[in-house]
Amino acid sequence: MIKKLILSLFVIAFFTVSSFSQNRTLPSVKVKNLKGSLVNIQTIENDGNPIVISFWATWCKPCKKELNTIAEVYEDWQEETGVKLVAISIDDSRSASKVKPYVNSSGWEYEIYLDPNRDLSRSLGVSTVPHTFLLDGKGNIVWEHRGYIEGDEEELLEQIEQISK
């Protein structure tokens, strides 16, 4: 009797946990676009294609290295996989005004948002930058990665290719 009870508890616990861990999606949190308007991050979309969300800052060297490296091959990536990259700066008021000049001078074609109060990064558990998330066409977070070392962009591309088929 007790065994059955324990077993059923386990079954319930298993399904509860598995349902919790499935389908992790973006939280309903507002970020600022470069025009100063608030945008709910859940509204970003890419016609059912994958989305890369990369947290970065103007003072973060590996972040800039990652995004500059991807910028060189971004057109190829878009053609091959239909992916869109959304770069979210966590610069605070000390450096937030440099985001747009830096982005423009670097010629990035990404969608840029600001998260100066870190509402979004805190909701996603981002404690250090760079931190990259990959969303499938339905908006589920399927992969994430902390930090950037040279060559990591190739692993990211492999992950994108896997879900864009």
Binding site: I12, F15, S19, F20, R24, T25, L124, G125, V126
Partner: peptide, 21 residues
Amino acid sequence: FIFISPYLLLSQNNLGQINGN
């Protein structure tokens, strides 16, 4: 529990999500 578990299974998408670091 037996009565509750199918309910839990059916409503699993409504249980919300947990994440953290």
